[in-house]
């Protein structure tokens, strides 16, 4: 009878391990290079946003399209689990505030205004 306790014990341990190890590796939902090769600027800066609305590969594509519409975005990498988006940009062309305004811009479709993305936090990296 005591051996039956192995089952809930194993379940508890393995689920705990799953939740602990989930942060050990990070694979993007989307990695989209926009300026590649010769088009890639010499100086690139990075900003990380936490964005309400980035929840899957499809919404990540939409985010990348909107974030890069003003130009100067080098690449967009998103992580759906943490709703984060890492944007590389050319500091001579754009800045984090302009990128934020681009992806948070309202979109009008069939007379209805949508705001697909809402920034929750913004962190600039070196």
């Amino acid at each position: 009878m005591k051996k039956a306790l192995i089952i809930p014990a194993a379940i508890a341990v393995l689920i705990l391990v799953a939740f602990v190890t989930v942060n050990a590796y990070r694979v993007p939902t989307l990695h989209l290079p926009i300026l590649e090769g010769d088009a890639r600027p010499a100086t690139v800066r990075t900003v990380e946003y936490v964005v309400d609305g980035v929840r899957c590969r499809g919404t990540s594509m939409g985010f990348a399209r909107m974030a890069s519409q003003g130009g100067g975005v080098v690449s967009v990498t998103t992580y759906a689990r943490t709703r984060s988006a890492i944007v590389e940009y050319d500091p001579t062309v754009t800045d984090p505030d302009q990128i934020r305004e681009a992806f948070m811009a309202p979109v009008v479709r069939d007379g209805v205004t949508y705001q697909f993305f809402n920034m929750l936090s913004q962190t600039e990296r070196d």
């Binding site: 689920i15 391990v17 799953a18 939740f19 190890t21 989930v22 942060n23 590796y25 990070r26 694979v27 993007p28 939902t29 989307l30 990695h31 929840r55 899957c56 590969r57 499809g58 992580y79 759906a80 689990r81």
Partner: peptide
Amino acid sequence: KAYTCRLTELNMSL
């Protein structure tokens, strides 16, 4: 080298 749709590291770990 990327996840599909809404799947994440948590699905892999579980």
